[in-house]
C-alpha cells in the first residue's frame, strides 16, 4: 500500500524532526541529526532542502521570523504542533514495532 504523503516518516525525516526540538538553521539541523543518530545518519544539504520544503508545505515546520537586525542570517525553522504530533505518532509506531519484536529476538538470541 503506498504511503500517504507524510502520514509516516522515513528515517531521515524522523531524525530531522527530532533535530527540530528547538529552532535551528539548515546546517545546525544536519549536525544535530548526525549527533542524535551517533554518526549513523548523514543528511546531504540537497536532501535536507527538499525535505524542509516538504515539511513546510505540509505545515509540520514553520520559518522562524528573523529578529530585527538579523535579516542577513540563515533561515531557521521550528516544529509546529502538527509536526510534533506526527513525530510523537512515529515514535510510538517505532516503539510498538520494537516491542512486538522483542520477545522473538530474545528467542533467537
Amino acid at each position: 500500500m503506498p504511503r500517504e504523503a507524510l502520514s509516516s516518516l522515513t528515517e531521515p525525516m524522523y531524525y530531522v524532526l527530532l533535530a527540530l526540538n528547538r529552532p535551528r538553521c539548515g546546517i545546525e539541523i544536519m549536525a544535530r541529526a548526525e549527533e542524535i543518530s551517533r554518526g549513523r545518519l548523514r543528511i546531504g544539504p540537497g536532501t535536507l532542502y527538499t525535505m524542509l520544503a516538504k515539511f513546510e508545505d505540509n505545515g509540520l515546520i514553520a520559518l522562524v521570523p528573523p529578529s530585527p537586525g538579523e535579516s542577513g542570517k540563515r533561515k531557521s525553522y521550528e516544529m509546529t504542533a502538527k509536526g510534533a504530533a506526527l513525530l510523537k505518532q512515529e515514535y510510538d509506531r517505532l516503539k510498538r514495532q520494537a516491542e512486538d519484536g522483542k520477545a522473538i529476538m530474545e528467542e533467537l538470541t
Binding site: 546531504g44 544539504p45 540537497g46 536532501t47 527538499t50
Partner: peptide, 14 residues
Amino acid sequence: APDIETDDLERVNA
C-alpha cells in the same frame, strides 16, 4: 562534507 543528495528515492524523483 556529506554528498549533496543522500536520499536515493528523492534523486530518482528529481
